[in-house]
Nucleic acid binder design. Structure first.
Length: 154
DNA sequence: GCCAACGTTGGC
DNA sequence: GCCAACGTTGGC
């Protein structure tokens, strides 16, 4: 069995939801402006890594479906666009600071695996996303946790 | 290199 | 909308 990465990626559904990804099939994960999250995308993510799509800052907070990495890290061009909300003048084409991967829709879960549920669950409560004060928008996930979540969501 | 001030994230 | 917990910035 080949080992591959598993990630949880947060998005505010008012900004970009699992339904948007379902319609679009693939998207560039732009707008990440946190170094640790960028480093995960740039240095650790591999093609076909699994992605748990997470909705934050909404009435139904939790994991809503599955995606996978379909393109390795490349410069986040929104950082160069003065009109973008994610514009960062420190990032240049010669020296791009911010990177993004592309992700591909796999499936939407039949229901939301809520954060509340994750925190209550004997195994899932150890996920990073359940940790107090954890704001990191891209987090590694263990194969055990992925298996449990798939069983609950599919 | 310290750390106060500030800005952001994201659950509640 | 509040605010705790972070991350970043910039003066010193």
């Amino acid at each position: 069995m080949t080992t591959h990465g598993i990630w949880l990626m947060k998005s505010e559904p008012s900004c970009y939801s699992i339904d948007d990804l379902k319609k679009q099939k693939t998207t560039s994960w732009d707008g990440v402006r946190n170094y640790q999250a960028r480093n995960y995308m740039r240095d650790t993510m591999k093609l076909h890594d699994d992605v748990l799509f997470y909705h934050s800052n909404t009435d139904q907070i939790g994991i809503v479906g599955l995606a996978k990495v379909c393109k390795l890290a490349h410069p986040d061009i929104t950082a160069w666009d003065p009109k973008s909300d994610h514009f960062d003048p420190k990032s240049t084409k010669e020296n791009p600071i911010w990177m993004m991967v592309d992700v591909e829709f796999v499936q939407k879960f039949k229901r939301v695996i809520t954060l509340q549920e994750i925190k209550m669950h004997e195994q899932l409560q150890h996920m990073l996303v359940a940790r107090k004060g954890m704001r990191l928008s891209i987090q590694p996930v263990s194969p055990e946790h992925l298996a449990i979540i798939k069983e609950m969501g599919i």
